[in-house]
């Protein structure tokens, strides 16, 4: 168990050099259930529990090992992050689950998040094919793309707050806007290379001038992953500051700046709110692999977007 980041990188480097597979483990609330179901388990895990650098939490710096519950309880934190974090799972899970783990949450699919016996019974799927080159069970007759759904709540909120993500690997450090972190494919999910981890997220102090909302669609008020989630922010004055991002719809969270920019070019009050919500709806393509039907989830993207914009006081 490494005691600092340098040691962690060294341990990872050794595994890579030896050609051994491994996973990082932080809070374990995502990884351990998956391991119990034998979903792509690795022979080794490297614990991040003792790396104190990753625990730092300030207004502008959120360590990857910060527990989700700490985000909800920290009064310094941006209210949008507290809201989004507070919507995740349950208090008990949030006391273990981490910010980094939530950002890097494995994508989910009802053909994938099942026991080993169950998956064997359907002859596996692309995401965990056990060497069989099985097809995707959602979009059949293909095994190029995994369409498992990204269902983490923090990402859209952080994207809307213009967060930067910081990574470390045995080869060095790098950073990027959070929206660039994700990479389309339910298996690849993000830009992380082997041995690379998320160290922290930074926010600009300016982000605190933004007001934000997060609307989550789920069957229950607690425990559930989002079937759709919409975050939105603006500075309360200028439409050009408006940002919208979604989660729970596709394999990665989406930054809807494109739809926003198109809408604000010819903004026309409440009619434009409807049009923008509609264009956000049109821009997403959920598939049938979560609890609710994809057509419904897509329609709800519009409803949640409209509610977000209205709640932000946009006219």
């Amino acid at each position: 168990m490494p005691n600092n980041l340098a040691e962690a990188m060294e341990v990872a480097g050794r595994f890579i050099a030896a050609g051994e597979e491994f996973d990082w483990i932080a809070g374990g609330t995502d990884l351990i259930p998956n391991y119990k179901w034998h979903l792509n388990p690795k022979p080794n895990v490297i614990s991040l529990a003792n790396i104190s650098e990753l625990n730092q939490l300030t207004r502008t710096h959120i360590g990857a090992m910060v527990r989700l519950q700490d985000l909800t309880e920290n009064e310094e934190m941006h209210p949008l992050l507290a809201t989004a974090a507070g919507s995740i799972a349950s208090v008990m899970i949030r006391r273990s689950a981490t910010v980094g783990g939530n950002i890097c949450l494995d994508t989910r699919c009802f053909w994938y998040n099942q026991s080993e016996d169950w998956r064997q019974s359907i002859d596996w799927c692309h995401k965990c094919d056990c060497g069989t080159e099985a097809d995707c069970r959602v979009i059949q007759n293909q095994n190029d793309l995994c369409v498992a759904t990204y269902q983490a709540d923090l990402a859209p909120a952080l994207i809307c707050l213009n967060a930067t993500i910081h990574l470390a690997s045995p080869n060095g450090l790098r950073e990027m806007p959070l929206s660039d972190f994700f990479e389309l494919d339910g298996m690849k999910k993000n830009v992380l290379n082997r041995g690379e981890i998320v160290t922290h997220i930074t926010l600009l102090e300016d982000s605190y001038s933004l007001i934000g909302t997060y609307h989550k669609l789920s069957q229950r008020e607690t425990w559930d992953f989002p079937e759709a989630g919409i975050a939105a922010t603006w500075d309360g004055k200028s439409l050009s500051s408006l940002k919208i991002a979604s989660t729970g719809i596709e394999s990665i969270p989406r930054d809807h700046s494109e739809q926003v920019e198109a809408a604000i070019e010819s903004w026309n009050g409440s009619q434009s709110i409807d049009e923008l919500s509609e264009s956000v709806r049109k821009s997403v393509k959920p598939v049938n692999n979560t609890g609710f039907q994809p057509s419904y989830r897509r329609k709800m993207v519009k409803v949640l977007t409209r509610r977000s914009l209205k709640q932000l006081g946009i006219k």
Partner: peptide, 28 residues
Amino acid sequence: LSEEMVYGRTGHLMNGNLLDYKIPTIHE
């Protein structure tokens, strides 16, 4: 409101666990 044993197009039970089989919580 929410509970149902869902069988998928292959005839398999799709939600044989207490995350996907939606028992109301205290919040409901």
